[in-house]
């Protein structure tokens, strides 16, 4: 897809970008096992600012585990994570949030019974005189949604349970970028969505990149991958088999890496 090249040329590294050539987040030789299962071994990954990195891999390749290691839900057994060039230990989702890492999980972490504003500010409520400042929260949430052009919801005060899949995903993404985040990880954001809703979410992903955020998108769907990715990284049985600019790939080559961990001489 030629789209990828155009999109990449338009990417704007933001002002606070780390020194040239250095990705905002670097994963080095990461390993993680669960009992006898080696979920990740010796994984390297670069997530540069102002670029969308697509993380591909078959079911069970370790994509979610890698995401959770970066997000502070799992602790890696080996290896290192560098944030803006400095080694960091991310021990909890809070640590990740402090650095500016936000995650949109595969199984959406939204409470259906709370409305959009309440979900976007969950555990970071704005207070006035010890009580919730609903007006300020509603104003900020509306502003963020408008800036991301998430405009299809009927009311910002409707419960998240009443939203469509695409709208829920959009709310989850908007929640992730509200907090001056610098890196957003999206685990299969389009897996459960229809065509129109998928387009809505992919547009949103592009807008994050255009704001100068580093973005990592996990996807099975190669249409989606080639539509938004500036870079592609492929995990195969817990190993990173390749990562490169999206323009260096075609579909068939990605599929080969995903299914056999190599190009089998044909690519």
């Amino acid at each position: 897809m030629s789209d990828a090249n155009v999109a990449r040329a338009g990417a704007q590294p933001n002002a606070a970008a780390p020194p040239a050539g250095e990705a905002r987040l670097q994963v080095r030789a990461l390993g993680k096992h669960f009992g006898a299962v080696q979920a990740l071994s010796d994984v390297d990954l670069d997530l540069p600012a102002g670029q969308v990195t697509a993380l591909c891999g078959d079911n069970g390749a370790g994509k979610t585990v890698l995401t959770k290691c970066i997000a502070g839900i799992f602790q890696a057994d080996q290896g290192q994570i560098l944030w803006e060039g400095k080694p960091v230990h991310i021990r909890s989702p809070r640590d990740a949030a402090h650095l500016g890492i936000e995650t949109v999980y595969q199984d959406l972490a939204l409470a259906d019974n709370l409305d959009i504003v309440q979900n976007m500010f969950l555990a970071r409520e704005r207070l006035r005189g010890g009580l919730l400042d609903e007006d300020a929260m509603e104003r900020d949430a509306a502003e963020t949604l408008a800036s991301l052009r998430v405009t299809t919801v009927r009311s910002i005060r409707q419960p998240v349970g009443s939203l469509s899949g695409g709208q829920r995903q959009s709310v989850a993404v908007a929640k992730a970028v509200m907090w001056n985040s610098k890196l957003v990880l999206l685990d299969e954001p389009t897996a459960a969505l229809g065509v129109v809703q998928t387009k809505m979410v992919l547009d949103l992903v592009r807008r994050l990149r255009d704001r100068g955020l580093a973005v990592m998108v996990i996807s099975h769907n190669l249409n989606d991958v080639f539509e938004v990715a500036d870079r592609i990284a492929v995990l195969y049985l817990g190993r990173m088999v390749i990562q490169d600019a999206a323009s260096a790939f075609d579909r068939q080559r990605v599929v080969q890496y995903m299914t056999s961990g190599g190009t089998n001489g044909s690519g």
Binding site: P93, Q118, N119
Partner: peptide, 19 residues
């Protein structure tokens, strides 16, 4: 109060939010 509702609605979401 907000956390009580969040936990009742989706405990995992509440946990990941840092509650």
């Amino acid at each position: 109060g907000r956390y009580v509702y969040a936990i009742g609605g989706n405990p995992e979401a509440a946990r990941r939010a840092g509650i």
